[in-house]
Design a protein around this nucleic acid. Structure first.
Lengths: 152, 152
DNA sequence: ATAATTCTGACCATGACAGTCGGGATTCTC
DNA sequence: GAGAATCCCGACTGTCATGGTCAGAATTAT
């Protein structure tokens, strides 16, 4: 029951795009520098995010990526779904599940449990938007500008 | 974000033990027959469940496994944890996490999110007990004893 | 032209997952 | 005591996802 670091990286990248929203595209080279993540890997993730419709790209010298819509309209669930696929604890509760694929379907007592679990996860992830993550970050930054002298 | 079928198998095995609770040990051969799961694989899982303290074993001819406590005192979270380890979307919110391991800790805005997610998952899984799963199953069975002639 | 960028596909190493196998230890039954 | 049923354990294996790297092509600003 864990989120891949792939998705985690993707989310970090998206928060950088969110911070830069409105100020032109942000290159993944910048993201890699700020977040200390491998550039070549981010390239792949950025492509996925673009194909998923969350960002749009500009090529060439001052190119980069930018969110396709404001940060408060992109949830963490959106990001995770694009990168990891649908959140689903077991196959039989996922969206594209074909009824009858699992022959134990009729007598399966745990399916209700898994559906509750999925709903619960979806709820948490869809309630949080990139805008909130950015806001939280700013708050943290303003509270502790210099970690070594916290009580200043 | 998914539960391994390993954990799923483990849970199915545990519900069988729950059904047999109080009537002597149940062999994994029986479990394999009832649930249509590979016997050799179940052996491994059963060992893990025993080491995790959820079941106790009896060797020899009429041996098998039995829950160490009543089914209403074993949650799904107990089972999943024993088999998959602690439920934790990212390392930095797990129980044994050593403060400072993640150098981005201070400035990490998403940690709060992951903690909420973990709590949400834990809540769902710990609220459901094996006893409830068994009860749900009985309900299902009583409603549809013969699928081909449902209205009898 | 050249430098900065995105875009794409191929490649790779590692580990988890799902499962098998062989054989040993224990205990009941006859 | 022999045999059968059962748990116990470690080793092995094939497949797949993860977490990357790399080389080069396409595009665009300067």
């Amino acid at each position: 029951m864990r989120v891949s670091s792939k998705a985690h990286y993707g989310l970090r990248m998206m928060t950088e795009f969110a911070k830069a929203y409105g100020a032109g595209p942000l290159s993944i080279a910048e993201v890699a520098r700020i977040e200390h993540l491998p550039l070549a890997y981010l390239e792949q993730l950025a492509s996925q995010l673009r194909r998923g419709g969350l960002v749009e790209s500009t090529r060439g010298v001052h190119g980069g990526y930018a969110l396709t819509r404001p940060a408060d309209q992109i949830s963490v669930l959106n990001v995770v779904t694009v990168i990891e696929g649908e959140v689903s604890p077991v196959e039989c509760v996922s969206h594209g599940y074909v009824t009858g694929t699992c022959q134990r379907e009729g007598e399966c007592a745990s399916r209700g449990l898994w559906m509750r679990l999925k709903q619960s996860i979806d709820a948490v992830l869809s309630q949080t938007t990139l805008a909130e993550l950015v806001a939280d970050q700013s708050l943290i930054d303003s509270m502790a500008p210099a970690p070594a002298e916290a009580s200043r």
